[in-house]
Structures are given as C-alpha cells and as structure tokens.
Design a binder for these strands. Sequence first.
DNA 1: CAGTTTATGTCAGCCTTGTTGACTTTCCAA
DNA 2: TTGGAAAGTCAACAAGGCTGACATAAACTG
Lengths: 171, 171
Amino acid sequence: MAERTASASMGRGDTLLFLTDDHLRRGIEAMFFAYRGFTADPDRILAEQGYGRAHHRAVHFINRSPGTTVNNLLSILGVTKQSLNRVLRTLVEDGLVEARVGTRDKRERHLFLTGDGEVLERALSEAQRNRMRSAFRNAGPDAVAGFRAVLEEMMDPDMRRHYLDGVDHNQ
Amino acid sequence: MAERTASASMGRGDTLLFLTDDHLRRGIEAMFFAYRGFTADPDRILAEQGYGRAHHRAVHFINRSPGTTVNNLLSILGVTKQSLNRVLRTLVEDGLVEARVGTRDKRERHLFLTGDGEVLERALSEAQRNRMRSAFRNAGPDAVAGFRAVLEEMMDPDMRRHYLDGVDHNQ
DNA sequence: CAGTTTATGTCAGCCTTGTTGACTTTCCAA
DNA sequence: TTGGAAAGTCAACAAGGCTGACATAAACTG
C-alpha cells in the first residue's frame, strides 16, 4: 500500500497523490455503487410495466433524437440488431414507438415516440433526473463540472463522440 | 426548453443554471457512456477466460475484504444468494477462491482469493485502474474530487455505507 | 433439552438481454 | 441491372438476474 502510493507520486512531489492505486480503487467502487443508484429508480418503474433497461435506453435515445434510424441507435447502444430489434418490436407493438419508413431512403426506419411513449419516457427520465438533481445540488456546480470532466475522459472515443453530439454548444 | 431553464433557476438568479433539465440529461448520458468505458477493459479479459461481470464483482470485493462472508458479499452486491452462489461455486471449483469454514461461527464461510485468484484480480483491476488513472490525470485533482462527490450523492444510503466502509480515514 | 433462527447451499424453472449464424426482402446507387 | 446496404426474422444459446421450495448444520433462546 505504502509502496503503491510512493510509486504513483514518484518524481513529482505530492501533486499526484490523487492517482494512487487506493484512490483509483475508490473511484472504481464509486462508479459501481453510484451506477446502481443511477438505475434503481427507472428499474422500479420499468419492472411495473414489464420492461427492462434495454427498453429504457431505446426510449431515451429516441426521445433525444426523434426520427433517428435503427442503425444510428445500434451504434449508440452498442448491441446487435437482433437484440435491439426485439426491444423495438415490443415497443412498436405496445404503441410506444412509431417506426416510419424513410422518405428519402425507404430502407431506413425513422423512430419516434408516440404519446404513450412520451408518457413513459417522462416518468423514467423524471425519476432519474430527480436523483441526479439532488446529487448535483448537494455536490455543487464545481463538483458537477469535475464529475462530467472525469466521466468524459473515461469514455471510449466512439462513445465520447455520441456523447458530445448531444451537447448544446449555444452558450 | 427555455421554460425548464427558467424554472430550474427560478428565484435564485443564475446560480442554479447547472440544474437545468438539459444539464441533468447530459449527466445521465455521461453516466451511461462512461460506465460502458468503465467496464469495457475488464469485460474483454473476462470473456477470454469464460467469466462475466458477476465474477469480477465477486473477485473485487473478496480482494478488498479478504475473509468476508457470503452474507456480507450478498448485501454489498445486492443479488440473491442463488445468483451469487452460482458465481462463487465456479470460482471455488476453478481454484480462484477459497471458502474457509468460520472458526467462531462454523455456519459462516470466509472467502479468500487463492494465488490464481489474485492473478486474475490484478489483471482485471490493472486494466480498470489504467483507464481510471488516465481519466483522473487528464481531468485533474479538483475534477476528481467533484467526480467522487457527485457519485457519492447518487448512491442509495445502504450502498453509500458500503462505499464509505472502504474509505481510508487515516489521513 | 427442544424449538427456532441464521447462514449457507442446492434444485428447478423462469425472464431479460446479450450473443452468433443463416436467411429474406427491400431498394439505393453505381 | 445488379451488387451491396439496411432492415427484419428465425433459431439456438449463454450469462446472470429472479422466485420458490427444501436441506443441513450451527447457533441461539427459552
């Protein structure tokens, strides 16, 4: 333990103490425990309606980018089309998602939430936002900036691109 | 969108702009994309050896608290004993984990990593720490403090207790 | 000491969500 | 007009959650 600390900060004085193996392990556990909290509230709502996290993810990104194609959703979610298709099929059957054939390219399906879909989306995202809001508020704006900076650095480059796609640069 | 921004910062000037629905949505997506990066490297190693994330979690917490009991692990991981038992059984069969009958209370099994178990643990945690270290380094110490503060606020109280159990208060 | 509770393990069966592989239909674009 | 991309479908499988029922040993309790 002592050696690890020494090696991590070696040659730079105390400036890199936040990079010791122990701090890194704490960061790892923070991610693990926080992600559980992060998904807990939506999971409860989803379970009531017979859906799972996969449905939540689809609904979230369709809501964020109405009219997105199946292929685009595939690259964001990083699953196989068979997996995604199973989820989308139930959502379309249940009337939560509408898949419109593309006008320019008729092979593509453009995905939209229906009214019912928007109701579910709002329930899920409100639950999740409530927890996030309370965490943000308690931690404060500077902490939030750090939170986002670290998470962004932790993403794979491809995912980071998808993340930044959703960023509003107009401010 | 404009109304949301207004409502979130209402009555407090611009101080609460970081709590707008849009910022919260970005935080939600940051968690989603970052968690994928967070698990990507260990997942690759695990897949090579025929294990999954469930094995990683067990190995991680046994390494963190050698001699921990099955019950304690259950409360940390938040799964059923049947789920955990399936994982522990394969780990014991494969000689990565040793389950010693308790001396004080012979009903309990105390869990330890074997030499082979420690080898796997090191491979997994090194991969994960490398990513975390690079993220921490690029974001800087203040960002890391914020990262941890927000994640801690996002945890369920029970999980937060487990998280803090692992904290080193000696500094 | 008898009865209850606790810790653990196990069997069976179910669900979600991921996977691979093979195949079809549609239809744009060179 | 034909090759290939986009999308959908079927089948089979695995990991890893879950519930419910039951077994065993040990510890605790009255």
